[in-house]
Design a protein around this nucleic acid. Structure first.
Lengths: 202, 202
DNA sequence: AAGGCAAGGTAGACATTGTCAACTCCCTCG
DNA sequence: CGAGGGAGTTGACAATGTCTACCTTGCCTT
């Protein structure tokens, strides 16, 4: 009986995991602390000992997703040809969105309450954007170009727009009723990367 | 006293308008039929005579936003050079998003309730996408190209991704903590259109 | 080692919400 | 003129977020 003695950290973890499970099965709007507590077999007030409010447990789930996402992108910076690295990072961006549509939509498609109240989340977002800028700068250097910060930012914003737009559309429910099927999206994705590459050529 | 006699259609309209007002002031998650009814000074059940459920009133608001949006884009198809028309439509897309960030986020940034349960909402969405495809097709024709539906769809998806991504990022709160200022976004927007144009050249 | 003490967990209460059912009012159509 | 039905009202019920008051238990202080 070494368990259920000091479950403090355990319950917090379990709440986060179970909250994600609830969102996955019933949607984010059906997330309720009582449902989480019920599934975990604890009282309806137990989660309140770890999260001040429903918004805070949701923010906790989102923060975890951001951390995962950043780690996912980080794995692409293994060193090597900057152009290939950059492309790999773009692919990883969409891979993550398609492998974890739930988390992606939570991060970028859900109105989060008080973004400035969760600085860790924003820090991760800044980190991801900085990775993209860094990749662009390295690629430009490798090609002998000297880009100003402004130019890097503009290119980064263009790429980010394309990737985020595609990811958001892909993980949205609109696609189904627009008549798009998986193999269409596969082709569209390849076309997107091709188009972005073409636009980046001087 | 010619009013409040047959307010049937009026109440439906008033509900939609007031629902949008509620969303604007308190956020979409605080939209409740009872709050709408309270603001309109009617009983908490009155809206149910026009909308079967809370999701249906939300879908009604979104459908109206899609219709407005499509009308906004439609104004660009006044005839003339298809290439200029298409560019104007892209500008109108971002203009709408920046002029009506609330509605834009409702349409594309909110988990919509059961799309197949609200065919009118999806019909409006399909219409907006069809406008983009139509613009692309006309431009290709004017240039003497014969594009297959697949190619049109892929180009449309690329453009839509770029526009939507930019619009979503622009209307999000991330920008602030990323250090972007309005004139940066102005330049980034011009750069985006330039890049998209470059990518569309064969 | 005894006694508190604070963190973690439980139970009950209250306001608010979505939604169902039964009721009233009044216009319209036969 | 009277029946019918659409529009609106009232009442009720379950579920939820959140507050307050209680219990439990391992640890720390003296």
């Amino acid at each position: 009986m070494t368990e259920s003695k000091r479950p403090s950290r355990d319950l917090r973890e379990a709440c986060l995991a179970e909250a994600l499970a609830v969102i996955a099965s019933d949607g984010v709007e059906k997330l309720s602390l009582r449902e989480v507590a019920r599934r975990l077999g604890v009282s309806h007030q137990a989660p309140y000992k770890h999260f001040p409010s429903r918004d805070h447990i949701l923010a906790g789930v989102v923060a975890r997703a951001f951390a995962d996402f950043a780690a996912y992108l980080d794995r692409c910076l293994a060193g090597g040809d900057p152009a290939i690295e950059l492309e790999a990072m773009g692919q990883a961006y969409l891979d993550y969105a398609s492998a974890h549509p739930l988390e992606y939509r939570l991060m970028f498609g859900t109105p989060l309450p008080e973004p400035e109240a969760h600085p860790e989340m924003m820090r991760q977002a800044r980190h991801a954007f900085a990775l993209l800028c860094e990749g662009l700068r390295r690629k430009a250097e490798a090609e002998g170009l000297a880009l100003s910060d402004e130019e890097v930012n503009r290119d980064a914003m263009f790429i980010w727009s394309g990737l985020h737009g595609f990811a958001a559309i892909s993980t949205s429910t609109i696609l189904g009723s627009l008549g798009f099927e998986p193999h269409h999206m596969q082709a569209a994705r390849a076309h997107l990367f091709c188009a972005i590459g073409k636009a980046l050529k001087p």
